[in-house]
Design a protein around this nucleic acid. Structure first.
Length: 620
DNA sequence: GAGTTTGAAACT
DNA sequence: CAGTTTCAAACTC
């Protein structure tokens, strides 16, 4: 849910449209949270509050052209974009748009325009101040800055308009200070606005280019935690209470990931209090990327259940270290965070779950269907997950290993079983505990167990080679029993095979290769022929059913109706009888029949042409 | 499809 | 580390 309504977004200039997209973490529950968002404020807006924002998480994204501020809520990350420049043309478009979408709310002259744009049930109050070429300010009621004040943000050639957005209860409110009577809001809205406005500003720092600056909180205050992610353009800031912050460890402590604990947030003071469940416990856990060496705080959670860490972006992008972990690795909980374990599951798995609608990350655990074995994959044999996904994997047939040993190809490849023929399979999320244990056992036995067996060889050697080499004794390494041969690589010096014939100059291997190539060519040809045939058949089937009355381009065969066929057969039979009666030789009989058949065909064709001509003459 | 062969993985 | 057993895939009939 973008804070800026799509309608308004569509009016924004192109230069802010190419900003980096912010992932939206899907949630399984209706949005019930309130999120405060703030963007592009050159001068921190004075606010007051008795209660600091608790567990409020704010992220900002800096791009070369603009700054995007986002907040995290149960609905995921929301995006704000500011500042942006509105050209005279766009300004006019906005005015026209506003004028055409006038609602019941009062409007002002174009120079100081208030308007309501309704979009998807959201009420978006937009105030534009100034004329074309001048800044456009979308302000909150409490903001007292004047139109000219917003021009202090940079040395833009063109004026830099700014806006400030406040999202309340899942709705976006943009409220102008000028000519914005409080009675335009409902009582509840006014209370909510007031409560949010009362949030005290935290110490801030300006980020961004000289042109675009965004005020983000500094970590110097206990309520603010700043998360730096090297290599990431995301800038993460988390606002937490002092108590929460203290439980999250020291800034210098190593961390594994950043999880936002679900807690309702009470913001505001006085009679107005808002309960703001930022991240309900039953909803998605958001990964706040943070390197292991980060000096930021350690993430913690008070929950005691195992949770999936589901990256909204590829793991490599968020936390490169994660991708080095074997499948299903459990991340140790942060110090003092209690008995918590996190199973790292590739984003692809999450995607598949979502597609299968089996994402039920409830507090009671996973509830995936037993009939659906979903698959996930980590990089294997040099293939990226995307690459490996595109290739169909053979289903396993394990019966005794429970698919929890390396005998099982699925398990060995770091995949969950999916559409396999295995019995008593434990290689699924339902048996995650056993699976994790099995993974650990395998890794204890061989830390390289889940690494690709086929890797690059030494300098000067074949580019690909088996990491351990094969041990074949009877197959001559020319059957698929041999892992080298199966991988279509030759045996190397590290192989311990006996009677190996899988080397470059091996005549057996060459013969086999030629045969294999020939077979492959045959298969390709057959496939091509089949494809062509099926294409022709489908083309034939796709033709519209002949309609006698349609005339036009009908072909003669469309006249071969049942009656015509019967008549033709009668003619042929009659000709056969005649030939027999005259005691003609067999060959002559056949010739006469074929001749008669030719006559029949000619007759059909002739009739077809005649019918076509007749039809054309009467314009049918 | 059943039975056999094979070699990697697991176990001792 | 070597020998043995287990296992599932590859192969044969």
């Amino acid at each position: 849910m973008d804070v800026v309504s799509p309608e308004l977004n569509s009016l924004l200039p192109d230069e802010i449209m190419d900003t980096e997209a912010i992932e939206v973490v899907p949630h399984s529950q209706p949005v019930s949270a309130m999120v405060q968002s703030e963007a592009s404020v050159d001068t921190p807006v004075p606010m007051e509050t008795d209660t600091p924002a608790e567990n409020l998480k704010v992220s900002t994204t800096k791009t070369t052209d603009s700054v995007t501020a986002t907040t995290v809520s149960t609905s995921g990350l929301q995006k704000l974009q500011a500042p942006f420049t509105i050209s005279p043309a766009n300004h006019q478009i906005i005015l026209n748009k506003v004028a055409s979408s006038q609602a019941t709310e009062a409007t002002k002259p174009a120079e100081t325009l208030q308007q309501v744009i309704k979009q998807d049930g959201q009420k978006l109050l937009v105030t534009t101040i100034g004329k074309p070429g001048q800044p456009i300010v979308l302000q909150l009621p409490h903001m007292t800055s004047k139109p000219g004040a917003s021009q202090t943000s940079g040395d833009l050639k063109s004026p830099v308009p700014h806006f400030k957005v406040l999202t309340i209860g899942g709705r976006s409110e943009l409220k102008p200070v000028v000519g914005s009577p409080a009675n335009q809001l409902t009582t509840v809205q006014a209370q909510q606005l007031k409560a949010v406005q009362n949030i005290k500003p935290v110490p801030s720092v300006t980020v961004g280019s000289s042109q675009f600056k965004t005020i983000i909180p500094l970590a110097t205050q206990p309520t603010v935690q700043q998360i730096q992610v090297p290599g990431s353009r995301f800038h993460y800031v988390r606002l937490v209470t002092a108590t929460t912050a203290s439980s999250t460890g020291q800034p210098s402590a190593p961390s594994t990931s950043s999880i936002q604990t679900a807690k309702p947030v009470v913001v505001g003071t006085g009679p107005v209090r808002m309960s703001v469940p930022i991240v309900p416990a039953q909803t998605v856990k958001q990964v706040a990327p943070k390197p292991l060496t980060s000096s930021a705080q350690v993430l913690t959670t008070t929950q005691t259940q195992q949770r999936l860490i589901m990256p909204a972006t590829p793991l490599q992008q968020i936390q490169p270290n994660f991708t080095n972990l074997p499948p299903g690795t459990v991340l140790a909980p942060a110090p003092g965070s209690g008995n918590v374990g996190y199973a790292v599951v590739p984003a692809q798995y999450v995607t598949q779950l979502q597609q299968s609608q089996f994402v039920t990350l409830s507090s009671s655990g996973f509830t995936t269907s037993s009939s659906v074995q979903t698959q996930a994959r980590l990089p294997l044999n040099g293939l990226t997950p995307a690459e490996s996904t595109s290739r169909q994997r053979k289903p396993c047939n394990c019966t005794k290993s429970q698919c929890l040993k390396l005998y099982c190809d699925c398990f060995a490849n770091g995949e969950f079983c999916n559409n396999c023929n295995c019995n008593n399979c434990f290689n699924n999320l339902e048996h995650e505990t056993e699976r994790l244990k099995a993974i650990k056992t395998c890794l204890d036995r061989n830390p390289e167990a889940f690494k690709p067996k086929i890797g690059k060889g030494k300098e000067g050697e074949s580019e690909r080679r088996h990491s351990k080499g094969c041990n074949c004794k009877r197959s001559g390494c020319l059957k698929n029993y041999c892992e080298c041969y199966e991988a279509k690589i030759m045996c190397s010096s590290i192989c311990k095979c006996i009677g190996c014939k899988n080397f470059e100059e091996s005549p057996e291997r060459k013969t086999l290769m030629h045969l294999a190539d020939a077979a492959e060519v045959r298969v390709q040809q057959q496939t091509a022929a089949k494809t062509k045939l099926s294409s022709q058949i489908s083309d034939l089937l796709m033709r519209p059913t002949p309609v006698i009355s349609s005339g036009g381009g009908r072909m003669p065969y469309t006249f071969v109706t049942k009656e015509v066929l019967e008549a033709t057969c009668e003619c042929l039979l009659e000709q056969a009888k005649k030939a027999e009666q005259t005691h003609q030789p067999q060959a002559e009989v056949e010739r006469l029949i074929l001749e008669e058949f030719g006559h029949c065909l000619m007759s059909i064709i002739s009739s077809a042409g005649k019918a076509k001509a007749d039809c054309a003459s009467i314009n049918c």
